[in-house]
Each structure stands twice: as C-alpha cells, then as structure tokens.
Design a protein around this nucleic acid. Structure first.
Lengths: 206, 206
DNA sequence: CGATCTGTCTACCATATGGTAAGTGACCGG
DNA sequence: CCGGTCACTTACCATATGGTAGACAGATCG
C-alpha cells in the first residue's frame, strides 16, 4: 500500500488511482466501474492501472484496505479524545457524521462492499472487526457507568451506522422527502437525528 | 405491466422474468445483472426477455413500477387498518418491517435505485411520492393528536427507512457485529429497534 | 558510455454483453 | 386446411471489458 502523503506533496500515480477507484466504486459500484473509464478520468491508460494493481480485484482490495485503515483511524482518535458522559458519546457519533460528510465515498464503499459480499467483503469486514470491538467496548463502558440505557452495544452501533448510511448516501431518497440535500440541510438533519439518538440512548437521570 | 396473479395460478413468463429481475437487481445490482444470467436462471433464452421487455432499461422500469406499486399497497393497507395512538404508529412501522423480512428484494431494490440515480431513480421516486406524502400526513396527524413528539415527519420517515435498510440489507455488517443474521435474530432485533424508535418518538405522557 | 530498471504506453486478445434479424412450431379464426 | 399471430428460438453482430505482450523513454548506476 502506498504510504500516506503529506498535505503539500502531489499524490503519486498509485495514490491517484486509489482515490479515483474509491470514488468510483462508492459512486457507480464495482461492476459499474470500468478500468478504462477510471484511467481516462486520470488521463492515463488502463494498463498503467494494471501495472500498479495486477487486477481489478486486487485494486478493490487495496481500496478497502486503505479505507478500513482510515475509518479505524478516525474512530480511534474520537474514542481517545472523547470526554465523559453523554458528551463523550455525542462526540464519537459526531465524529462519524463529520467523517461521512467529509468523505462520503467511505460510507458509499461500505454500502457497496455489503452488496458485493464474500470474499471481498469478508476481508473488509475482518479489517474493521477491531474497530467494531473497540467501539462496542466503549459503549459498554458507558452503559456500565450509567451514562446510557442498557442495549446490546453492537445493536446500537448498527442503529448509528444505518442512520449514517441512510442519511448520507440515499440522496435520491432525500429528494423524495422534499428537500434538496444541501450541505446546510444535511448539517441540520445531522443535529436532529443526533437528538433522536440522544433521547433513545440517554438514561433517565441525564 | 402483467396483472397480479392469484395464489393458485402459475406465473406467466413476463411475471417470472420480473420476479427474477427484481431479485437479481436487488442482490447483484443492475450492472451486475446480465440478461444471459437472468435468462439461464429461468431456463429460457435471453431473447425471450428482450421479446417481453425491449431493453434492459425498460425491464428495470417495469421492475421498479411493480415494486413501487407493491410498496404503496402494503403501506396503504397498514395506514388504513391502523388503530390509534402509539399502537397505530407501531402497527405501521411493524408492517414495514414485516414487508422487509418477507420481501427483502424490495428493500434491496430501493437501495440499488438510490445508487443508480437519474433517470431511472427519478421515475421510481416519483412513483413513491404519493406514498411518502401519505405517510407524512399520517405522522403529522399523530403529532397533532399528541401521540408523538414533534419532528419533521419526513425526517422521521427517513430514520425509519434507514433503520430498515441498515437492518435488512447489510448482512455482512450484521456478521461483523458478531451475529449470524438468522430469521430469529432479525425478529428480535426488529423488536429492539422498534423499542429504540418508540422511546425516541413517544410523547412524555404515554 | 552502455546496461539495467522503472513507469507508461501501443497493440492485441478472449470473452461477455446488450441488442438485431430471421426462423420455427403451436395455436386459432375463417 | 391455411394464413397469420404468438411465444420463443437459433444465428449473428458491435461494442466494451479485463487482461497480456511487448515496445519505448527516461532515470540510475557501474
């Protein structure tokens, strides 16, 4: 995997390929992405892609590996920096929302992987398992501390996850709901859904 | 569009095609579905499909039209039969869950349509708009009657929708959450998420 | 300077795909 | 019995796709 680049440096060719592939896999799907289209968007030839990634499947693996690492990074940071009580939970959920707004391709990729299924998805899911375990442990600790109602932590993660998925990837659905999904309305919606989760999760005494 | 068939009659060829196409579009995606594979699954030739539906795109339209009609039917029935108060809301949400369990392809299709985007998705979304308006009106009436907290009704619909999507289509994600998604666990999860929504939506006096 | 390696390109291939044209057998009204 | 329609087939086609083979230019190094 190419090493993470600094803000000033221009991306290397394999990095540019990974960026474009992530966007395309998330947006048009794996099957809907052709190496030719990918290459032409980068003003290179398809064979250059196959030089760096010997097959489309390997390219997908590289994309998922890098994305899983980024997802893990963001949530790990949020978990470490979080305060205590509801504010702590809120901070973590908010960091997920922020990530989804900043890098919607990552959410789109998760959705796409769930559709592709094994073996590619199995690998992705294995990459993410430590993250899920970590987040579950966090939620469980908050329950033990009485900061939130008793729920199965992984069930809660699923609720949060599916909310994020629903909010940020189903653009057409948002439209039928009568709103142009602008950045502004997304932020407002985020806040409202956070309230929704809040009232569902909070303990009585909060 | 072929007319709905009764329980005893065997399906006509175009109906069988629509059934298989719905399952495949929802499962493997539009791009991931080839007419050849579709046909071979039905033990017919691809040209028979093209005889009934002159192109793959028209087939998709036929599938979405029929699916939108079925979604509308189910929810309309639920809205009409619902009682009053929270029980009424619960009955409607439950009918959505039931539909999603019984016909997961419908949910998968919604997800796929949101990925495909215009123009196919626009048509689907237009077909569903009356349903969404109806459901919004229902929720708004419940708010007026004081049966639930004030929220934007379409926002609530989105929350319910995304929960259903997350629950019933992200099978791989369920797996990483440590559970084999059996019918039994899905039912239990449904109940728990219904509780989650309940506590989020209920008015204080309930 | 010459050999080698690295990154990208041109040329090509086998296969799969959506779609067209035309044929075939069964049924059906006259 | 016969012409026509219906449902479906075989035969075919143009294009797009993932992937291979090998050429070529520039940098690197002895």
């Amino acid at each position: 995997m190419p090493s993470r680049r600094g803000p000033g440096e221009e991306p290397t060719t394999p990095e540019r390929i990974l960026d474009a592939a992530l966007a395309s896999f998330a947006g048009r799907g794996y099957d809907g992405t052709s190496l030719d289209a990918l290459a032409s968007g980068l003003a290179i030839r398809k064979q250059t892609i196959l030089y760096w990634f010997p097959s489309k499947e390997v390219l997908l693996e590289a994309v998922t590996d890098r994305s899983a690492a980024e997802l893990s990074d963001v949530l790990e940071t949020a978990l470490v920096e979080a305060g205590s009580g509801w504010g702590r939970i809120e901070a973590v959920v908010r960091s997920v929302f922020r990530l989804a707004v900043r890098r919607p391709e990552l959410i789109g990729l998760v959705r796409e992987m769930s559709r592709i299924g094994p073996p590619a998805a199995t690998r992705f899911v294995a990459d993410l398992e430590p993250l899920v375990a970590r987040a579950s442990a966090f939620l469980e600790a908050e329950m033990d501390a009485g900061h939130m109602r008793r729920h199965q932590p992984r069930l809660l993660l699923l609720a949060i996850y599916s909310t994020v998925i629903g909010m940020l990837t189903e653009v057409e659905v948002l439209r039928v709901f009568g709103e142009e999904p602008t950045a502004r309305s997304l932020v407002r919606r985020r806040a409202e859904i956070l309230d929704l989760l809040r009232s569902a999760l909070l303990t009585e005494g909060d």
